[in-house]
Each structure stands twice: as structure tokens, then as C-alpha cells.
């Protein structure tokens, strides 16, 4: 069934893994060429710096080469490699230089003693999603995500962009699921506040 790429992929994958375990040099090159592009895209999203993304990809492949003997056929090779490049990117982030970050507390709603909001929140118009068709606006959103404090940005990227579950993110970052949920909520709140001037109803 040539239309079902996942079926043919599984057989190809099993062969590739067997060749890798046998130490076949050509198989290593194939692994890098077949999966490297997609993995580099993940590292770029996480690191936002081309040089760091290259380093993370290289670290990820070195880890993968060493661990290929432990790869369980039960999961897809792509999923397994995705995990490894995310972890390599997280390692890189921990050692990365500080960027200029906003203070998250300044971006959360403020409340009166009775629990009402101090100021009514800015609503977003229904055209907000359509505006994502605009290339400049997308670039602005990415730059704004980059200004979030690293702990928050990382959770937002893993959960909302890479599509990891709360449990997976908690495991990667070695924190509780409650911490992941709260950081994600705060990250979205802060991002909303930063984007209000561009996407808010009065914008």
C-alpha cells in the first residue's frame, strides 16, 4: 500500500535500526539525512539560535548513536529521536546565556481585595486568528514568545507548539505536573498581555 507511508515506514525503520546496530556507516548517514531536517526544526523552535540549534542536533545524534542499542521497536524512531533532540535542546538552554526577559508578574491580571479585576481585560477580536496569516505578525508573535522567562517559554514551546503532554513535559523538565500546568497558564497569560496592543479589540 504505497499510500500508507506509516506502514512502509515501519518496515524501513526496522531495517534501518538493524543496520545501525550492526554499525553500518551508510545507515548512520541515512539516519542523519532522513531525520535531521525535522529534528533541526525542533531545535530551532526551542533555541531560536542557529548555532545553538546545530550544537543541540549534533549532541542529539551522538546520544542517539550511543543509545540505539536500547531503542525499543515499540515506539517510532521519529518519536524517539524527537525526544532526544528536545532533551539535548533543554541541556543547551540550561547553559545558554541570559536573554532579556520580561517579568511575568507584571503581565498577570491584578485584582481588588474582593477578587474583581482591577481593570477589565482586553478582549481579542475574532479576526485574531486570521491575522496569523500575516507573516510580520507571526514574526512578532515569535519574538514575543522569546521574551518570556526561560522557564515559562520552555513549557509553552513543549506543550503548545511541540504538542507534548503535561506528563511528558514534567518528565523532561524534572518538575511536577502541577508546576507544568501553572507555568503554562502563566506563560499564556503573559503572552496575551504582551500581544494585547497588537491583537486586542482596541488595537
Amino acid at each position: 500500500m504505497p499510500t500508507d507511508s506509516s506502514t512502509t515506514g515501519a518496515a524501513d525503520e526496522a531495517r534501518l535500526v538493524a543496520d545501525l546496530r550492526a554499525g553500518d556507516e551508510a545507515a548512520y548517514e541515512r539516519l542523519v539525512r532522513d531525520y535531521g531536517g525535522r529534528l533541526l526544526a525542533v531545535a530551532r523552535r526551542m533555541l531560536r539560535n542557529e548555532e545553538d540549534a546545530h550544537d543541540a542536533l549534533q549532541d542529539a545524534f551522538i546520544s542517539a548513536f550511543k543509545a540505539i542499542g536500547r531503542f525499543e521497536g515499540g515506539s517510532r524512531l521519529g518519536t524517539w529521536l524527537h525526544r532526544i533532540v528536545v532533551n539535548a535542546s533543554l541541556m543547551k538552554l540550561r547553559s545558554a546565556r541570559r536573554r532579556e526577559e520580561v517579568a511575568i508578574e507584571d503581565l498577570l491580571p491584578r485584582y481588588l481585595d474582593d477578587g474583581h479585576m482591577l481593570e477589565p481585560p482586553t478582549g481579542w477580536s475574532d479576526t485574531a486568528e486570521a491575522m496569523a496569516q500575516n507573516k510580520e505578525l507571526r514574526a512578532l508573535v515569535r519574538q514575543t514568545i522569546d521574551r518570556l522567562p526561560e522557564n515559562y517559554r520552555t513549557v509553552l514551546v513543549l506543550r503548545d507548539i511541540e504538542g507534548h503532554s503535561t506528563e511528558e513535559a514534567a518528565e523532561s523538565l524534572e518538575v511536577s505536573t502541577g508546576v507544568i500546568k501553572t507555568r503554562l497558564h502563566r506563560a499564556r497569560q503573559a503572552l496575551k498581555a504582551l500581544l494585547d496592543p497588537h491583537l486586542g479589540e482596541t488595537a
Binding site: 482586553t122 515569535r142 514568545i145 507548539i161
Partner: peptide, 29 residues
């Protein structure tokens, strides 16, 4: 309004970071 804007924030973050027109070519250097 706030709840709705947070849903939109989540969706726009994803769109902005994964839009095919913005991706660099998948070829590895």
C-alpha cells in the same frame, strides 16, 4: 473575554511557530 483571548493566544502561538511559510528549508546544511 479573558478566557477567549487565552484560547486565541494558545492557537496563535502554535500558528506563528509552525507556519509552513516561515520554516527554513528542511535540508540539513
Amino acid at each position: 473575554d479573558y478566557l477567549d483571548a487565552l484560547h486565541k493566544t494558545r492557537d496563535i502561538a502554535k500558528l506563528a511557530c509552525t507556519h509552513p511559510d516561515d520554516e527554513l528549508p528542511p535540508d540539513l546544511p
